[in-house]
Nucleic acid binder design. Structure first.
Lengths: 346, 346
DNA sequence: AGGGTCGATGTGTACGTTCACACGACGGGG
DNA sequence: CCCCGTCGTGTGAACGTACACATCGACCCT
């Protein structure tokens, strides 16, 4: 016997009030956890809610409070799915805990699609915006749109500028890249190539900056990074190209997928990893431990980023305080794709 | 000069009407594309909308129409991220085109988390529900919750029952599994093992059924499938275990990640793929082409599933007709992880 | 005993939109 | 020439909730 078997219309606050024998305002107070209410009255109302199968109407609530309790999440549609999905899941859980909802919108990279995505978000009246895997083009679009919302971008930008009141928060990509590079240097590598992600992607740029800094610090020769997509396909093409040059003993890839492509290319070209070449990735997606050879990579805690980004946003929304912004340290996962360089390769 | 520089309050339909010199109802008509309206009036209203920076208030609209124009998407949080994410992206685009929004909710596998996820969905007043990567436990929870919505589950179930009015739609997993199995048989394999996904996951079960059917049809010996998670980690453990038995010449894994783990295990145990063992996966995630060796697998068009699932739902919502339900055929991608069996292995 | 305070509950109104209906003008048919 | 249908537009409600304020009783203090 489903309780909702009343009429065609869903029960509202007044129906509940009638059952409990109170006014609708009292019901409203119970719903919003008001202090000034007698325990027994509250109990009676709660029973009436239960009995009627009442659910607060979000639309009416949003209308009268002019608050949607919705956080917009703008995610760029990319090859790397693990990170974003993990973050979004964590966000959703955290948001729900605080009584918020998520409006997830994915976008391409062109200004038009970004603008369209932004438009979709505003039309849903989001109260804040979290940008996952942000690109500079996204920032530009946001600035153009002149929308004024609490904004958190999930990147660890130190070197990139962003719209005024935006916070950025993430795993420290710069530091992660330095850890990866340092690891290779400590193994004895002197000629290290970076296969980088698209430079309009802020995280990718951070990784490259970290790589370059560490090289500079150790006075090692800097070769121009190869720029491309964060995909295994591109990693493969880059790897084939690299083998022709033979002027390196290690490669630091901007993510694990690229590293996978490199492993593939190196095997195809008859090179052994890590004997002939060392390879380091970034992200530590669950598959990376099973690449051949298992990949040395930089682990980032995506779930923590997702969770805390929502806390940041809600802190600003509910208490006006932005909350503390402290980048999360990544961890280097040393596996079997890195080893000291051998002679014959410089 | 942003047009919204009016007051603290956002412009509403009446403000627009005042500017255009018409009544608010006329504005409403323009917004909803009514026929009975003079072109020049319409033009005037449109200019007023532009000038004021007016945006329709969704909450008010939802309140009065009692339609949220929101489609709930229930996704189980899994290891395999590529498929769901690709589908969700396609859904979002398709939904937007039809003027709908998505409410994405991810859930674990326990009855409690599923119930909680369902609760989140109802509280958002979704008009329909699409279940991504459904498990039987999800169906049970849906039935228990006695919610009455257009329901589409993204699986190709032939052998599983589901709640009354649900439609299911997907790539044909059964057929895909048969294709994979047939491929191995045609190569000459007689002893094939299936490393299956969790059986409460309907897609995984479909794959197993297809595998078993094909074996039965060819009168080949059936070994008990290994059941586990759809992860590389589990694939690895299963692979190590399998090598001890040595009673097979080919393995059909329930997804690509599992296949990756198998490749890893086989290499660790000194077996060569495909020389000693053939391996087939399922999904054709972008990385699969770069496994070592590149993986023979079954490709499914996730984006098409996402797109058409939304069309199905909206068809039912807008026109009352469910739309046609026809499974999408998968494609076998033959790469380098499969070859005829060699002697020494039965 | 009376006034003031506070705690608990009720009444009016507003939020922004759509729906049902009313209204005036215009044209055609008898 | 009048009536009536139709086209274009306007007026009054209603959706379900929260906020501001009003009310009412009880209790305390003097």
């Amino acid at each position: 016997m489903p309780p909702e078997a009343g009429r065609g219309r869903a029960p509202n606050i007044r129906d509940v009030a009638a059952i409990a024998g109170v006014s609708y305002q009292t019901v409203s107070r119970v719903l919003n956890g008001s202090e000034k209410i007698r325990p027994e009255t509250k109990q009676r109302v709660l029973e009436a809610i239960e009995e009627s199968g009442f659910r607060p109407n979000q639309a009416a609530r949003a209308l009268v409070t002019s608050r949607s309790r919705t956080i917009g999440v703008l995610s760029t549609h990319q090859y790397a799915h693990y990170g974003p999905q993990t973050m979004v899941h964590a966000m959703e859980v955290a948001a729900d805990l605080a009584g918020y909802r998520l409006a997830l919108v994915t976008t391409g990279s062109t200004p038009e699609t970004i603008a369209a995505a932004l438009e979709r978000l505003v039309s849903q009246a989001v109260e804040a915006l979290i940008v996952v895997a942000p690109k500079v083009s996204v920032f530009e679009a946001i600035e153009d749109s002149s929308l004024d919302l609490p904004l958190v971008t999930l990147d660890s930008s130190i070197h990139n500028k962003r719209p005024g009141r935006a916070h950025s928060f993430a795993v420290d990509q710069y530091e992660g890249a330095r850890m990866a590079t340092r690891h290779l240097i400590e193994l004895g590598h002197r000629s290290i190539i970076h296969v980088a992600g698209p430079q309009d992607w802020i995280e990718a740029d951070e990784r490259m900056q970290g790589f370059l800094f560490e090289l500079g610090e150790k006075d090692l020769p800097v070769r121009a990074p190869i720029l491309g997509e964060l995909s295994a396909d591109f990693g493969y093409r880059a790897g084939v190209e690299l083998v022709r040059r033979r002027d390196f003993s290690a490669v630091f890839a901007a993510n694990d997928q690229m590293a996978l492509g490199l492993l593939h290319a190196f095997r195809d070209e008859g090179l052994s990893v890590p004997h002939d070449v060392s390879v380091v990735g970034f992200d530590d997606i669950p598959d990376a431990a099973h690449y051949l050879p298992p990949l040395t990579t930089v682990r980032q805690d995506f779930a923590a980023v997702g969770r805390r980004s929502v806390e940041l946003v809600i802190g600003e929304l509910d208490q006006g305080r932005p909350g503390s912004v402290e980048f999360i340290r990544p961890t280097l996962m040393v596996r079997e794709s890195t080893a000291p360089p051998t002679a014959g390769w410089r």
